[in-house]
Write a protein that binds this DNA or RNA. Structure first.
Lengths: 160, 160
DNA sequence: AACAAAATGTGGACAGAGTCCATTTTTTAC
DNA sequence: GTAAAAAATGGACTCTGTCCACATTTTGTT
């Protein structure tokens, strides 16, 4: 009976062995996939159904206890580090995900210039690149040279 | 024989009826899914295989002719508007996607503060929210009030 | 215009992630 | 302790997207 129990209680979520184990698993391995978390939980408490994993993760995300990251071409990942402000840097080649701090207070690109009548509730930023290890493996393979600055300019490749 | 043919030729991509139709379809409906595009192409030239759709879209994205957007929890979408610089605003409820201009020249949040040794090649920004129509349907349903400014601060919901 | 080689397209099987549902088990609240 | 409510189970199923072997179309050339 730890912190996890208190967190669930505080949010009015019934406390079950599965939820506690899942919460611990997320804490132990940030950015893990639902499947990986299920494995971790099974190793700890023996068994958990796929459904329970998805339900629980979904509930926890809804309550703001967990954050769900859904990078292109990869299954969803979960992390417990909420409340602070950060974005993600993902390796295109191996999927490795690391946190990058957001410079709070400077957010021009994060204010949509036209909101089209939408009620915006979140701005998600993902930096795509190649991690050190994958760089080592197939170093100069990507198309064209990359300027490491001016990311905003490079959100799209130039035409032609 | 239009522009599309020239584009393909310019990139050394063999010109086929499927590719031309696909290119036209993307132009006609930005942000469409592979499936929707396949339907559009079928309406135009009778038939196209799923595989051809994916192959072609993949090739076009590689060549920089198309951009692929892969929003969380939704199939990939494609758009032809490349070369300019913009991000996306997506409705959580119905998936509607609209372009939002990026304020070029102001990009603090888009410079990763720590690159962890990664070679970054793109910064992707997605604004999540609710579109006007969905707002009408279930107006005050989302959890908690939302401040429409300070997006950066709201990338995560506050703890507790 | 015709031909051979190379590149594409076709269709169906298959895989990964996630959802649906009816039923059983556990929590919670009284 | 008990009944009602909420979760968990597990198996079927859906949706995207990929793999593969074989048929078709493009290209580049003669």
């Amino acid at each position: 009976m730890f912190n996890s129990t208190a967190i669930l209680r505080k949010h009015g979520i019934p406390v079950t062995a599965q939820r506690l184990a899942l919460l611990r698993a997320v804490g132990a391995r940030p950015h893990a996939t639902a499947d990986a978390l299920a494995e971790a939980v099974r190793a700890e408490i023996g068994t958990i159904s796929k459904q329970a994993v998805y339900n629980t993760l979904g509930t926890l995300v809804e309550k703001g206890i967990l954050r769900r990251i859904q990078p292109a071409g990869s299954p969803a990942r979960y992390e417990g580090r909420v409340g602070d402000n950060h974005h993600h840097l993902i390796c295109r080649s191996c999927g490795k995900t690391v946190d990058v701090a957001c410079v709070v207070g400077e957010r021009p690109c994060l204010r949509a210039s036209e909101d089209s009548g939408f009620r915006i509730d979140e701005a998600e930023v993902i930096f795509w690149g190649t991690c050190p290890r994958c760089l080592g493996k197939d170093g100069a393979q990507q198309a064209g040279p990359v300027k490491p600055q001016d990311f905003c300019e490079q959100t799209n490749k130039p035409p032609n």
